[in-house]
Structure formats: C-alpha cells, structure tokens
C-alpha cells in the first residue's frame, strides 16, 4: 500500500525576479512502513521536497498525497525531525518531548504524560528528564527531537539530515539506535542524508537525486534483511551498492545528458 505519493512535483523559488528551479518533475512513492532514504548533492532540493511533504512549503505543480489525500499544510499524520534540533531552550527534556502532542491536542493530559515517559525511555534519556537542551550533547538533543516526533504518533516520519551535525562515532551509534527504535515503532520514514552508506544501512530503498534542478536519477532496493548490524557496512555487497551509488552521484550532469 502506498503511504506517500509524489507525482510530477515541480518547485520554483523566486529570488527577486530571478527564478530558481529547485525540483523538476519529481515522482516517487513510499510504501506503508517503508524506510526510504534520499541522497543527492548539496542544493539538489532534498530539504525543499521534505518541507513540501511536511506542509511547510506551498507547491504549485504536481501532486503530493498521503493516504490518497492531497497535502495542503502541516498535519498530525506527519512529524519532522530537523537537522538542527530546534528544541525549545526554555523547556526541559520532557517538556520538549510533549510539545508536539501539546500543540496537536490529540491526547488528553494523562496519555501525554504516559507517552512522554515511554519515549524518554525508548530514546534512552532516562535520568535527563529535567535537563535543559543546552545541558545535553548534540546526539542527545537529536534523540529528544526524535522522541518529540514519535510521541506525536505520526504515520509518516520526515527526517532531514538528523545526524549531520554529529561526529562519526555518535552518528553510527545513532543510526543503529534509530533502526532499533524504528523496528518497534514501524513508521513510514522519509530520511534525507548526504552520507551514502548511512542511507544504505538504514533504508529499504534509496532514492538518488541529481544536482539542481533536483530530479530522481535512480532508485535502489536494498536487499539486506533486518535486524541489521553495523558490520553490514563492511559486507562486500554493501560496498558494491555504495560504490554504484557513489558513481551515480558523482556523475556530471553533462555526461548523462541534461535533457529528459
């Protein structure tokens, strides 16, 4: 069953009178419960696409649907994990985790309390409930960000380079944590990243986008079963897929012909 469908999506920005074509005729679909990763060079429109799906950006051309309903603004069926943790600095960790639920008013007080406690534990932040975001490391802040999104109980989880600001070690750790959490929550995920091996390690399918204007260049189905461990990243088949995607991303637009 298709959860999220994007068809012929085109997005232009206007810089004064100059037009920037950010997305050109992008089509892709994400199945219910699927983990979809999107990679592509900087500036190819990944954030633009995610913001459109989140309902934070208007679009004029094309169709974006969730459960066959056109996206026309933010909704409780989606939750976003941004690259910068964007936590309220004056709220404690539990205050931040309940923030999304609070805004959406879908749960009563008691349920919010229960869910908050549940997700604090799930992301491994027990003991830090009363801390402020400024007292946490970058990795911990991103867990709060993730917990806030999951606690709001979305059908689709949108993640925009959530681990980009973390060091390599923390990043790997967060990747396996994310997989663990995802295997319990089983949300449909759209995960944007710069790192190709992160995309392969996490996703069921990897979408490769071309440089500006953003188009879908290719989609790879990742054949590895779950649960996955970090040692998978050294598997020869993994490295082969990584290499193929690398070459695709590095290709100059001229070489594949910029028409289409």
């Amino acid at each position: 069953m298709v959860k999220l469908a994007i068809e012929h999506l085109t997005k232009r920005y206007w810089r004064g009178s100059r037009e920037v074509l950010a997305l050109a005729d992008v089509s892709l679909s994400v199945e219910d419960g699927e983990f979809m990763a999107i990679v592509g060079p900087s500036g190819c429109g990944k954030t633009t696409m995610l913001n459109i799906v989140a309902g934070l950006l208007p679009y004029e051309q094309g169709v974006v649907e969730i459960d066959n309903k056109r996206v026309a603004g933010p909704g409780a069926d989606r939750a976003v994990v941004f690259q910068h943790s964007s936590l309220l600095p004056w709220r404690t960790i539990i205050g931040n985790i309940r923030y999304g639920m609070e805004l959406q008013k879908r749960f009563d007080k008691h349920t919010m309390q229960e869910r908050t406690e549940h997700f604090v534990k799930l992301v491994g932040l027990s003991g830090f409930e009363r801390h402020y975001p400024s007292e946490l490391s970058g990795g911990m802040q991103q867990r709060v960000n993730l917990a806030r999104a999951l606690a709001a109980d979305p059908k689709v989880l949108l993640m925009d380079e959530p681990f980009a600001a973390l060091d390599a070690q923390t990043r790997e750790f967060m990747q396996s944590e994310l997989l663990k959490i995802w295997s319990e929550a089983r949300k449909t995920v759209m995960f944007i990243t710069h790192q190709i091996n992160e995309a392969i390690y996490l996703a069921d399918r990897v979408v490769v986008m071309s440089a500006r204007p953003g188009r879908v260049k290719d989609v790879f189905r990742i054949p590895f079963g779950r649960p996955r461990t970090l040692s998978l990243k050294r598997d020869p088949r993994f490295l082969e897929i990584e290499d193929t995607i690398w070459q695709l991303v590095e290709e100059k637009p001229e070489r594949i012909g910029m028409t289409v």
Partner: peptide, 25 residues
C-alpha cells in the same frame, strides 16, 4: 526561525506560537 518552523510542523496555531515560542523567548 527554527523554532517557528518546528512549531508550524506540529500544526501550531498563531496563538500557540505566540504562547509557546514568542512569549517565553
């Protein structure tokens, strides 16, 4: 702006943004 965007993503109304982002900030 990051906080504004996050609030919007969780369907915050103008009044909620005022109460939870603008005033405490």
């Amino acid at each position: 702006n990051d906080l504004l965007r996050a609030a919007r993503a969780y369907c915050a109304s103008d009044w909620q943004i005022f109460k939870t982002v603008a005033v405490p900030g």
